[in-house]
Amino acid sequence: MAKEKELLNSDKAPEPVGLYPHARRVGNLLFLSGVGPRERGTKQIPGVELDEQGNILRYDIEAQCHSVFRNVRAILDAAGSSWDSLVDVTVFLTNMKDDFATYNRLYAEYFKDNQPCRTTVEVNSLPTPIAIELKCIAMVD
């Protein structure tokens, strides 16, 4: 028996930076590729100031958190799922020491009604000059 596999993209979330979809549905599970805070149609990253070489001078983790949560929601909506259907969230932060408290506070606001499993890890860097990326799994009806 063949399993249903469907690649999905949102016209509201930022374009992927490589050859991958925003999400892939397998049965009633939706697997999201890593989602960052970039804005669709631009290379703009909310709250980030870069120097001429593209190095991060300053960033606002709060602005990036709000943006990445919006992007995840856009992908979920486009795929026929919802925020409340999230079952697992892996969060990658580039600066756990300075950013975890702000991220954790905002996460608690966004996830107060739905509490998926969560793992938060610090990474040295991410593929674009961002400070946060989410990898999610959700249910789809």
Rank of each mutant, 00 (worst) to 15 (best):
M1A: 14
M1P: 10
M1H: 08
A2P: 06
K3V: 13
E4H: 12
E4M: 13
K5S: 05
K5R: 07
E6Y: 06
L7N: 11
L8N: 05
S10N: 07
S10D: 03
D11A: 12
D11E: 15
D11I: 09
D11Q: 13
D11C: 11
K12F: 07
G18M: 09
G18Y: 12
G18T: 08
P21G: 04
R24I: 11
R24W: 00
R25C: 01
V26E: 12
V26Q: 05
G27W: 00
G27K: 02
G27D: 01
G27T: 03
L29Q: 06
L30H: 05
L30A: 08
F31C: 04
F31D: 05
S33V: 00
G34T: 01
G34C: 03
G36M: 02
P37I: 04
P37T: 02
R38I: 05
E39R: 14
E39F: 03
G41F: 10
G41Q: 07
T42G: 08
T42K: 07
T42Q: 09
K43C: 00
K43Y: 08
I45A: 02
G47T: 08
V48K: 06
V48L: 04
E49W: 03
L50I: 07
D51W: 06
E52I: 10
Q53Y: 11
Q53A: 14
G54V: 03
N55M: 08
N55R: 10
I56K: 00
L57A: 12
L57S: 11
L57K: 15
L57E: 14
Y59A: 06
A63V: 05
Q64P: 05
Q64R: 08
C65Y: 00
S67K: 03
F69P: 00
R70E: 11
R70I: 00
V72E: 01
A74W: 07
L76V: 00
D77F: 05
A78M: 01
A79Q: 03
G80N: 06
G80V: 02
S81W: 03
S82R: 00
W83C: 02
W83F: 06
D84N: 09
D84K: 12
S85G: 00
S85R: 09
L86A: 01
L86K: 00
L86W: 00
D88T: 08
V89P: 02
T90I: 13
V91L: 04
V91N: 01
F92V: 07
L93D: 11
T94A: 12
M96V: 12
K97Q: 15
F100S: 11
F100R: 13
A101V: 13
T102M: 09
T102Q: 13
T102V: 15
T102N: 08
N104Y: 14
R105D: 15
R105G: 13
L106S: 10
L106P: 14
E109M: 03
K112D: 10
D113H: 13
N114P: 04
N114I: 08
Q115A: 13
Q115N: 13
C117W: 12
C117N: 15
C117T: 13
R118V: 15
T120R: 04
V121C: 10
E122A: 13
V123I: 15
N124W: 06
L126S: 08
P127L: 05
P127N: 10
T128G: 04
A131Y: 09
E133K: 06
E133F: 01
C136Y: 02
I137N: 04
I137W: 03
A138V: 02
A138R: 01
M139L: 14
M139G: 09
D141F: 07
